[in-house]
Amino acid sequence: MNKSILQNGDLLFMSDQSDLSKAIIETTEKYSHGGIYFDGMLYHASRKRGVAKQKLEEYLAEEKHEVFIYRYPEIDAEIIKERADRYLGCEYNHSFYPDNGKFYCSQYIAEILPIFDIIPMKFGDDEKEISDYWKKYYEELGVPVPVGQPGTNPGQLAKSEKLKYIGKLDY
């Protein structure tokens, strides 16, 4: 799908080949990052920028992701954009713990577009409750792994029955 199909309020879900992306996908499904589109800009929470808006073209050139478009047909894009703007400049939530004033990508989306279920977070698979990647990640942060804490993930948001899958973005 061409970028011209994008509408304000479209949700963009993506994945790449980084170790963090692989760890997220291993414990969720399909996507490791998400953002919301308004006026040529991707609003998202990233490790590099915190909560920011970035030209979509710049993001796509910088990050080599496969990008998939989802739409919430009942969105009031103007209200959601106001909410999205409110959190610009907030820090990235590296720990993924809830209620600390910081945001990871799907937490930001769920905050500004409150249509998603909050679920217990997972950091492992059927064999291990916590994968080796996440054990090391949280050791370096110096905090316990938040297994079972309330949260969201990009794959879970994309599976919402409230969203309509539009297609893969070509760029």
Rank of each mutant, 00 (worst) to 15 (best):
Q107K: 06
F96S: 07
I109T: 01
R86K: 15
L12Y: 01
F13L: 12
F116Y: 12
E58N: 08
L42A: 08
F123T: 12
S15K: 11
K53M: 11
A84Q: 07
I24D: 11
R47Q: 14
K48L: 03
I79P: 00
I119V: 10
G101A: 07
Y59M: 11
H33D: 03
G50A: 02
E78N: 09
E62L: 07
P120E: 01
I36C: 06
D99Q: 12
L20W: 04
I80P: 07
H33W: 00
A45E: 02
G124A: 13
D85L: 12
F103T: 07
I112V: 11
Y97D: 02
T28K: 05
H94C: 02
Y59T: 13
D16G: 15
D132I: 10
K22F: 10
A52I: 03
G35H: 04
D132H: 13
G34P: 00
L88Y: 04
K22D: 13
K30T: 11
E62A: 09
R83P: 13
F116N: 11
E74G: 02
G101W: 03
G124V: 13
V51L: 00
I109S: 00
R47L: 03
S21C: 08
Q17R: 07
I118E: 14
I79E: 15
A52N: 11
K30D: 14
Y97N: 04
D19K: 13
D126L: 15
Y97H: 01
E66G: 05
Y43Q: 01
I109F: 04
D39C: 02
